[in-house]
């Protein structure tokens, strides 16, 4: 009984992942993917690398390239996941989803899978650009550890995306919020300058966001650090992402309760 139930939940998870990819993955066209997943990342890196080189000297270009390459995970983790959750309302499929007997936690978490994978692909593109165009040197890097950092950061940013995706269920302009969150991370998460330069209170916000510790760990990995030296940072990064995802699920469940009681699946 236990095994068949787990198998059933895994099947729901797999189906939900597949359907959210075919129905809700918003970059599933060649032009859309090129525009938003290749052109925009290249532009963003170019902008901040040139800005950083102008402000601090060309020798620091790789610092900005690495930070921005990692921040690209938020492209999938924030924009992708928010759209995947919030678009159920826009497409009119939310009442059907809420009417299904499927496990809510399983269907909710499945929203992140494709976007996490996509986030990893985006960072690989970002690293290729950083190495090819901006001279990011990985000769001394601990590559397996750097790869682990990328996976962890992709997971944690998707956690934040799940939270704001749930908020998107009750507001019409979720994409604007996604835009703001994505770009706020450029300032708060140590992507372009150390978090220590921010005011004390703002640093608290920085460390409650995904990416901050992940970027720090990745910089250490590029410098050749071992797993033991960054394990704390990566553990913290995972915990932050999990906390945001669970908060998002709790909000989703609360909103579902309200909607069921009031019959307002599409009205709130």
């Amino acid at each position: 009984m236990g095994v068949s139930r787990i198998a059933s939940e895994v099947a729901v998870f797999a189906r939900s992942t597949y359907f959210q990819y075919v129905a809700l993955f918003q970059w599933a066209s060649v032009r859309g993917y090129v525009a938003y997943k290749i052109l925009l990342p290249v532009d963003q890196m170019l902008f901040f690398v040139e800005l950083g080189a102008y402000a601090t000297g060309p020798e620091n270009a790789a610092y900005f390239a690495l930070g921005n390459a990692l921040q690209l995970t938020a492209n999938a983790g924030i924009f992708g996941v928010i759209a995947t959750v919030a678009n159920e309302r826009h497409f009119g499929t939310l009442p059907i989803l809420l009417g299904s007997p499927a496990n809510r936690l399983v269907t909710f978490m499945s929203r992140a899978v494709v976007n996490v994978l996509d986030g990893i692909v985006t960072v690989i593109i970002g690293f290729a650009i950083a190495i090819g165009l901006f001279g990011l040197d990985l000769h001394h890097a601990n590559i397996p550890l750097l790869a682990l950092c990328v996976v962890v950061v992709s997971l944690s940013t998707a956690g934040l995306g799940l939270m704001f995706g749930s908020i998107g269920l009750v507001m019409r302009d979720a994409i604007i919020v996604a835009n703001v969150i994505y770009y706020v991370m450029l300032v708060l998460c140590g992507v372009n300058f150390p978090v220590s330069r921010l005011p004390g209170a703002v640093q608290l916000i920085s460390y409650s966001l995904p990416l901050t510790r992940g970027v720090e760990a990745a910089r250490e990995a590029v410098a050749g650090a071992s797993f033991g030296q960054v394990a704390g940072l990566l553990g913290g990064e995972l915990l932050v992402g999990l906390a945001w995802a669970l908060a998002g699920y709790a909000l989703f469940a609360t909103l579902e309760g309200w909607a069921r009681r009031g019959g307002m699946q599409e009205a709130y």
Binding site: A55, T56, D173, I176, L186, V187, N192, F193
Partner: peptide
């Protein structure tokens, strides 16, 4: 119509200005 639309012209440039100012005000510059 929507208060969230204000974010586009209010917060978005503010974020870029903040990022730019932090980078451009790097000590020694």
């Amino acid at each position: 119509v929507s208060g969230w639309m204000y974010l586009n012209w209010l917060v978005f440039p503010l974020i870029f200005a903040a990022a730019g100012l932090f980078v451009l005000s790097t000590p020694g510059g």
